[in-house]
């Protein structure tokens, strides 16, 4: 937990500095009415102060109350793999098309997570995909026809 708190305060502090640097270039106040840069700078200062408070508090935190955050175990790796899969899926979705990419993606995930026989997995995936396609594409008029294949 300690380490995580340090990381959190560090990331936010850097984030706040970036905001201040960008917002300083915005037009100034006009006739007493704050310009577009004023609120971003106020909020960024607030972030800096909170990050500092978090940093100091964590420094003072007794080691005994420290808890470990798991970021590397097998089950967390599964999460990273899922994220990667989804990034790939959303990147390919517009070019390949909804029905094909979604059926494939769903089949792989369901097979991986639940170890059902292939035919059952694919049946569930395709039926669900077609259901969503019909619901959004036909009933709700969301344009779902894009991509090369289908």
């Amino acid at each position: 937990m300690k380490k995580a708190n340090f990381v959190v305060s560090g990331i936010f502090a850097a984030f706040a500095l970036a905001i201040i640097i960008i917002a300083k270039g915005y037009p100034p106040s006009n006739h007493g009415v704050p310009g577009p840069g004023m609120f971003p700078i106020i909020i960024a200062v607030l972030i800096l102060v909170s990050a500092l408070v978090l940093f100091i508090k964590t420094l003072k935190m007794p080691v005994t109350s420290d808890t470990k955050i798991d970021l590397k175990s097998r089950s967390i790796l599964n999460v990273y793999i899922s994220m990667g899969g989804l990034i790939l899926y959303t990147a390919l979705l517009p070019t390949i098309g909804f029905v094909t990419s979604t059926s494939v993606m769903l089949s792989l995930y369901i097979k991986w997570f639940s170890h059902r026989p292939w035919w059952k997995t694919i049946l569930i995936a395709v039926l669900f995909t077609l259901g969503i396609y019909l619901l959004f594409g036909t009933v709700l008029n969301v344009p779902m026809r894009f991509g090369i294949i289908f």
Partner: peptide, 25 residues
């Protein structure tokens, strides 16, 4: 409290993105 404020401020920061509603910047 500090984490809550950090997170709230993050939300506010996201709302800055886009055309400013007062000056159009």
């Amino acid at each position: 409290l500090s984490k809550g404020v950090l997170c709230g401020a993050l939300g506010i920061t996201l709302s800055f993105i886009g055309i400013d509603s007062i000056t159009g910047y």
